[in-house]
Design a protein around this nucleic acid. Structure first.
Length: 384
DNA sequence: ATGTCC
């Protein structure tokens, strides 16, 4: 039983310059066809194949929603902070030295800043983790495409949008183990069938999902605060936006559910679209009135190569030292030899093509371009 | 993606 092709809107937003895997397009169509109640599926230009469902996509459904479509990293997103550090007073090597290792659990001093009652309440609401477990991974970046990056404002397209003198901090992380546990327990009970709206099961998932969203946001905030402490800088939050979630949503007169799987909301104000760790990131203004891309934008450059192909493709050409610096002379801290190959700029699409695609479709205007000074992926303690 | 899988 599938959805009628006539009633299902499927659209990919990418110009000819963007690397696009046919497997990802197939996943988009298969998902739109096979999950009951899907009315619209949109591929953003960072679209790439995922485990069954594509990443860089948004799906609108009525009557049911699909936790498996959100995936394991519920609440994953981007935060951007302005800092009190002056660009001209610092350098990648200074930053790297001052930062040290920030992978492990938070220290006592930082934990004092955490609202333990909030953590307790989150643990209670999600029902699958203790407050102690949540505290253990709080303030940790994680693996995969997650990172924290200190950046300089390279170009301002909107005058006064950011202070060019200030270093900015971008954090990409999520709910760590919590979201994965919620998804695993859900799939054990319901497979990939999704949940009918307004049932007790739907309400139960919704509560866990809300807890994971809040935990992911708190996690990003604590990552920023531990970096602020190490670098003796003040923070001022510019934005914090999740790109993995499901929301109640109205689309073209129907009310239903909007799933974003690596898709940034276009209806929550300014957002950031990061490039690879050796590329620019963009602060953009979404065209919030436009509905043809399901009120969503790309959440990054998008992978070009599968993780499993990266070491084989890049090791003959690039040493570890090559990958620890970039064309901008920024530093990449990543003590995990496999991860640094998987996350090499070559493994990602060109972010300028991704941005241009969205710009040409009238889905955004540029606000600022940010250039990496130091990207923190994973320090020495955790690896091997 | 992963208090991750070998």
């Amino acid at each position: 039983m599938g959805n009628s092709l006539m009633d299902t809107y499927v659209q990919v937003f990418a110009n000819r310059s963007v690397w696009m895997e046919s497997a990802a397009i197939e996943q988009l169509h298969t998902t739109a066809r096979n999950l009951q109640g899907i009315r619209a599926a949109v591929g953003l230009p960072d679209l790439h194949p995922g485990r069954g469902y594509p990443v860089g996509a948004a799906f609108f459904s009525t009557g049911r929603f699909y936790p498996a479509l959100v995936g394991g990293d519920i609440g994953c997103g981007m935060a951007l902070h302005a800092t009190s550090l002056r660009v001209h007073k610092t350098s990648p090597s200074k930053l790297e030295k001052a930062l040290g290792v920030i992978d492990g659990p938070l220290t006592e001093a930082l934990l004092e800043e955490v609202d333990m009652a909030q953590l307790q309440a989150l643990a209670q609401r999600c029902g699958v983790a203790t407050a102690e477990a949540l505290q253990q991974s709080l303030g940790t970046i994680g693996g995969g495409n997650h990172f924290a990056e200190l950046q300089a404002v390279d170009t301002l397209y909107e005058e006064g949008a950011l202070d060019k003198k200030c270093v900015h901090l971008m954090v990409h992380s999520g709910s760590r183990g919590l979201g994965g546990t919620i998804l695993r327990e859900h799939v054990e009970r319901f497979n990939h069938d999704g949940l009918a709206a307004a049932t007790p099961e739907a309400r139960a998932y919704w509560q866990q999902h809300e807890a994971a969203i809040a935990y992911a946001q708190l996690n990003r905030s604590m990552i920023a605060r531990r970096m602020a402490r190490a670098l003796r800088m003040e923070l001022s939050l510019v934005l914090d936006i999740s790109h993995n979630h499901v929301q109640r949503h109205e689309w073209r007169g129907e009310s239903g559910f909007l799933h974003r799987k690596g898709a940034t909301p276009a209806d929550e104000g300014l957002v950031v679209i990061p490039g690879s760790r050796g590329d620019y990131s963009y602060l953009v203004r979404p065209a919030s009135e436009r509905d043809e891309a399901l009120h969503s934008l790309a959440h990054g450059a998008g992978r070009k190569w599968a993780r499993s192909d990266c070491v084989g493709r890049l090791k003959p050409r690039f040493s570890l030292a090559d990958l620890q610096q970039t064309r901008f002379d920024s530093a990449v801290v990543c003590a995990d030899r496999e991860l640094i190959y998987e996350e090499a700029p070559q493994a990602y699409k060109d972010v300028d093509g991704v941005i241009a695609s969205l710009q040409e479709a009238g889905l955004l205007t540029l606000v600022a371009r940010l250039r990496p000074l130091l990207t923190y992926k994973r320090g020495a303690m955790q690896c091997c």
